[in-house]
């Protein structure tokens, strides 16, 4: 007994070291480009192209940030992006949960067909869809409004949300929601009181993905709006790429400013990842 405990302790130390090395390497891979972006955003344009490159800025400047933060037009891009992304997340999650529940727990005629259609919708490249879709949006009188973007992103995210929610619900034992029904609860009660809380990590991850799609999309955001007051951050960044020169530091700064609240939001929601299913609930 004492022997196994000691070997386990030693192997745990080894595991711990391995883990830290792995995580650090991964963090360099994931984080270095972002760090480079941050550093570029506080360098003047010329220093960005200096060779040999400087890591810490020789000339430190926050002018890229002040340029953005003092322009109400540019701040509007951020507001628009957040408004669109939040609306898309809420609506998509609702639709995804309802449909995912149906697909996971019930069999009904044409289930395969629904599945196929849901997947196929996103199998046509957006580039070819652009013009017909654009025509449709004009016809629906949605052109140059944020609603056009919200609906568009929902078209892209709902199929995904349905598939993933079906997947997450499938990993939850059916006995759990059947217990509610045995006690006389309705299907809806089983969904909202048992399945949704249990699948919370999944819901958060679907929400995160949905947010990123809406947050980062450029092609349709550019095409379906035209007023400056309806532009989103990706379009705003592209507007800094001129015919003759790019405003490198300001592009980087806009990107940094855009991602900060997203990261804070992620930090805020990520506890949901570790507070999922409990051992007790499964035994029940």
């Amino acid at each position: 007994m004492a022997v196994t405990a000691r070997t386990r302790g030693r192997s745990q130390v080894g595991q711990r070291i391995g883990l830290w090395i792995g995580l650090t390497l991964g963090a360099v891979f994931a984080g270095f480009p972002a760090l480079w972006m941050l550093l570029s955003s506080i360098k003047p344009n010329t220093e960005i192209f200096q060779f040999p490159p400087t890591f810490l800025p020789e000339t430190f400047t926050l002018s890229a940030y002040t340029d953005i933060l003092t322009s109400s037009e540019k701040l509007r891009f951020f507001l628009n992006s957040y408004a669109v992304a939040s609306a898309v997340v809420l609506l998509t999650l609702f639709a995804g949960i309802m449909a995912g529940y149906a697909l996971s727990r019930f069999t009904f005629p044409l289930k395969s067909l629904v599945n196929t259609v849901v997947i196929s919708v996103q199998a046509v490249p957006p580039i070819t869809l652009l013009i017909p879709y654009f025509g449709l949006v004009v016809w629906l009188k949605l052109y140059d409004s944020l609603w056009a973007l919200i609906l568009t992103y929902m078209v892209a995210t709902i199929p995904y949300a349905i598939l993933m929610m079906t997947g997450y619900f499938n990993t939850i034992p059916k006995e759990l929601d059947e217990a509610v029904k045995v006690d006389g609860g309705s299907s809806m009660r089983a969904l909202w009181q048992v399945l949704v809380p249990t699948a919370r990590p999944g819901i958060v991850s679907v929400g995160a993905y949905t947010f990123m799609v809406a947050w980062n999309e450029f092609l349709f955001a550019l095409t379906l709006t035209q007023s400056r007051s309806n532009r989103t951050v990706p379009v705003g960044i592209q507007l800094l790429m001129g015919e003759h020169s790019f405003k490198w530091s300001e592009m980087m700064a806009m990107s940094v400013l855009g991602c900060l609240p997203v990261l804070v939001l992620f930090l805020f929601f990520q506890r949901q990842f570790v507070s999922g299913i409990t051992a007790g609930a499964v035994k029940a």
């Binding site: 991964g26 963090a27 994931a30 984080g31 480009p33 972002a34 972006m37 995160a208 990123m212 947050w215 980062n216 999309e217 450029f218 951050v233 990706p234 960044i237 592209q238 790429m241 592009m251 980087m252 990107s255 855009g258 991602c259 997203v262 990261l263 992620f266």
Partner: peptide, 11 residues
């Protein structure tokens, strides 16, 4: 680790 995700493709 989620950093690569929060940037738009052009950036």
């Amino acid at each position: 680790y989620i950093l690569p995700w929060v940037f738009t493709a052009s950036i």
